[in-house]
Simulated assay, not measured.
Amino acid sequence: MSRPFVTKAQLITELNAWDAGKISAEQLQDWMVTYYDPPEVEIGPGETEWVQEAMNIIMNEYELAKIPKFKKEGYIFALAFLECDESNFYQAKHRFVHDGFSD
């Protein structure tokens, strides 16, 4: 039996849909809850450990943050975080977490 998973491409598709106005912030959060919450879901199979960690952080933040705190530019920071590598992981993480949401 295969384990359910979320790919980087699937996450990017959802973020793009939100940015394009095809889904609401509520729908984005619902998707995160549906696909991130279950502990049996594998996040980012085949990706580097940096990308897997970025995916986990992005999905966790969008799952738990209050919707009014979502900033549209968070989309850009999320995509940059997904493209990070070891050399810029912490900068991309900080930018996404601190600038992608209002306090």
Rank of each mutant, 00 (worst) to 15 (best):
N56V: 00
V51C: 07
G100I: 12
V51Q: 00
G100P: 07
V97H: 08
E83W: 10
G44T: 03
S2G: 07
M59D: 02
E53F: 01
Q52W: 01
P38W: 04
E83F: 12
Y75S: 07
F101A: 11
M32K: 10
T7H: 14
E73C: 00
I76K: 12
V6P: 10
W31D: 13
D103C: 03
A78F: 11
E47N: 10
D30R: 13
E49Y: 09
E53M: 03
R3E: 03
Y62T: 08
A20R: 10
I43W: 01
T13K: 15
D30M: 13
V6A: 14
E61I: 02
I43M: 04
S102K: 05
S87A: 09
K69E: 08
A54K: 02
N56M: 03
K66H: 09
Q29L: 13
S102Q: 03
Q52G: 00
D30E: 15
T34F: 13
E49N: 07
G74V: 08
D85P: 01
E42P: 00
Y35W: 15
V33L: 13
T7A: 15
F101I: 12
E42R: 04
D30Q: 15
W50T: 05
E63Q: 11
K69F: 06
N16E: 14
F5P: 00
T48N: 11
K72C: 01
F77H: 10
H98T: 13
E47A: 10
Y36T: 04
W50D: 09
V41G: 00
K93V: 01
G44E: 02
S102W: 00
F96S: 06
E49H: 03
Y62M: 09
I57E: 03
I58M: 03
G100L: 11
L64C: 06
F96H: 04
F70N: 03
L28N: 10
Y36Q: 03
